[in-house]
């Protein structure tokens, strides 16, 4: 564990808490893509299967439980309590276009051709693009509640911090994980446009609005 990764995980944890807080305080999941949230459940469940056969640390164990639990809780809230505030008509990204290619790529690029390793690769690739339905929804509506942008910013920071983590690990432990690094770079790249608007508008106290 190093500081970059710890802060990254903390940002990830914070993003989820911000999202749950947003839903409870505004009593709404407006502006949140159900598809993206469902993809995160798939990501966590397929990646953390190793809970059953690999022990890393107490930290790792509880974080995994939290990510699986909280992502399922968010889906549950979106399907029950806040269902009326959800608008499927604008959440129209076709996730088949993500699931299909990620499956194929995971079958080609993995560290071992075994079910759990293929699922691990799949989860890494899927995580890198899981935010797309959310960004697509944002693009369609052209604006977002400030709290929703904080959620996205925290998610982006989480991913961005994993990059110095990998550089640090390369020099201190000699660890290089090409699958995680490639997918991580793609994932971070997807946030660049969002971050530009976030920094130039939201952090200046303005509303998040995309140029027409």
């Amino acid at each position: 564990m190093n500081l970059f990764r710890f802060l990254g995980d903390t940002a990830h944890l914070a993003s989820i808490l911000v999202l749950i807080h947003k839903m409870h305080t505004t009593k709404s999941c407006r502006g949140i893509s159900f598809k993206t949230q469902a993809l995160y459940v798939a990501v966590f469940v397929t990646r953390y299967l190793d809970l059953f056969y690999r022990w890393v640390s107490l930290y790792n164990f509880f974080m995994k439980l939290f990510f699986i639990g909280s992502s399922c809780y968010i889906l549950f809230l979106m399907k029950t309590k806040f269902r009326p505030t959800q608008d499927p008509a604008i959440d129209t990204f076709r996730i088949e276009y993500l699931l299909g290619p990620c499956t194929v790529i995971a079958l080609i690029f993995n560290y071992k051709f075994s079910p759990t390793e293929i699922l691990w690769s799949f989860s890494i690739f899927l995580e890198s693009v899981a935010i797309l339905p959310q960004l697509f929804l944002l693009q369609r509506t052209g604006e977002a509640e400030t709290i929703t942008t904080h959620y996205l910013a925290a998610l982006g920071i989480y991913r961005a911090l994993y990059i110095p983590n990998w550089i640090y690990r390369y020099f201190t432990e000699g660890v290089v994980d090409p699958i995680a690094i490639t997918a991580g770079l793609v994932q971070t790249g997807l946030y660049i446009d969002f971050f530009y608007v976030y920094v130039t508008k939201v952090l200046q106290g303005q509303k998040f609005e995309l140029p027409a």
Partner: peptide, 10 residues
């Protein structure tokens, strides 16, 4: 001896 997996990451 480079190690090629980060299975200890979240």
């Amino acid at each position: 001896t480079a190690q090629h997996t980060c299975h200890d990451e979240l």
